[in-house]
Write a protein that binds this DNA or RNA. Structure first.
Lengths: 153, 153
DNA sequence: TACATTTGTATCGTGCACGATTTAATCATG
DNA sequence: CATGATTAAATCGTGCACGATACAAATGTA
């Protein structure tokens, strides 16, 4: 088999395991997040808002590397759950500002224990803490490299 | 800020960059795959079939870590594009066997150059080849660990 | 042989993702 | 200050993902 053909095999690829790992982690989160009645992307939005209580739609998009056509419906669902409110900025009428409600802010307390629950799922003794740290570093570099490429497309 | 609260930040997490990297790689693939009129998941199915021309739906699901409720519609779309055929196995009437058509087999030639096009996108000088190899190894271990967890759920 | 259990695939409903496009507000430049 | 370009958000259509469920074929067991 030629080198070129060998590259067509799943195992030699980087993208498939990224895709699989992403879906698998979402599945690990699902039962934990169900307690808060959140999906994983909804949880990501809440994470951003717990860090900055008041953000424009655009600011949320930038942090999550998502487009408004994905985020807008997400925000509407979270608004329906009374976790946040959306209102046009009077400063710039194009902007929509997103704010946590009291309920949304309170949910943060329930979320505090999530990371350790998830980390416990990841830690299987198979991968050392040092390896994970290195992995995480490379992963972030990769995200930044890819994001720069994609933004130029 | 407590350690517990710090973990609620996006930057400290493993899952968000996995999710972002997965979406970004799919975006990098999109224009390349458009030439073949394939989406990324469709390309994954074709990769599997180029390796084993004749597989059951279940065998495809196992290789891609997907369920039949995702794969069945995917296969139907590929069937509509005349890239494969589906037929009940006479051996075991529950099984549906998937086979490449001539057109599906021919498409492989066009796909041969894809991996190098993608690798070129990844390679930015930012990440050394050794780092990528190590990263890939950890990533596969992670996929296996997570998959084992998820299958026990 | 009956009948319960398991297995393989498909169906349905919901929620992302995202390309393409739309609309309205703001900005820039002559 | 007029008008063309840019920006922010939303809308629409398509294709995944996946939980829950259905259903038929195969298998196991009394």
């Amino acid at each position: 088999m030629s080198d070129q053909a060998a590259r067509l095999y799943l195992d030699n690829q980087l993208c498939f395991p990224l895709y699989a790992a992403s879906r698998l982690t979402t599945k690990i989160y699902a039962p934990v997040l169900k307690e808060l009645d959140l999906t994983y992307p909804q949880y990501l939005v809440m994470l951003v808002l717990w860090q900055h209580a008041d953000l424009s739609v655009n600011a949320i998009c930038e942090r999550l590397l998502l487009e408004s056509n994905t985020v807008t419906p997400l925000l509407k669902r979270l608004e329906q759950k009374k976790l946040l409110t959306r209102r046009r900025s009077s400063d710039d009428e194009r902007r929509v500002m997103v704010s946590l409600t009291e309920k949304g802010d309170q949910l943060r307390k329930q979320a505090l224990s999530i990371p350790e629950q998830i980390v416990a799922s990841f830690d299987d003794g198979e991968i050392s803490e040092a390896e994970i740290r290195q992995f995480q570093e490379t992963l972030w570099t990769l995200v930044n490299v890819l994001n720069a490429k994609v933004e130029k497309m």
